[in-house]
Amino acid sequence: MQGMSPIVKKVAQLVMGFIFVYGIYIITHGHLTPGGGFAGGAFLSGTFILLVLSFGSNVLNLRREEEEASEIEGLAIFTFLLLAVIGFLLGMRVFFGNFLPKGRIGELISAGVIPLYNIAVGVEVGAALLTIFLALVIYKEEISK
């Protein structure tokens, strides 16, 4: 896949950071505002997808990137499960138990473990969407060869 024109590349460079930070904002405020892990994770993967689309598939070693993304995905979802199991082992023996102090409604650090779940889900979704995208790009490269 070829890269696009210099205009697209420059704009992508300028915008990418903002999109990434906005994704992080959506993830970390998941328990306060609409959004959360899935929506924020989609933003995170969007920046990488923008990078590949604007600069072409040659800037990255796609196969290695895909393997790494898939491993990060595995780690993130494993962390999620670990958090749920910690709730099971600590406290009142409840799977998905909320073992941290709940805090006050409306503050950033509140709602116990839910922000942690959101972060794990955000990383997982970002990595998963990126893996899917990279896999499809790799298939396309294979066919056009």
């Binding site: 899917i132 896999a135 499809l136 298939y139 396309k140 294979e142 066919i143």
Partner: peptide, 12 residues
């Protein structure tokens, strides 16, 4: 995602 990747493989 599963369907589309199968479709690409089928095309290949």
């Amino acid at each position: 995602a599963m369907l589309l990747s199968t479709a690409i493989r089928i095309y290949k």
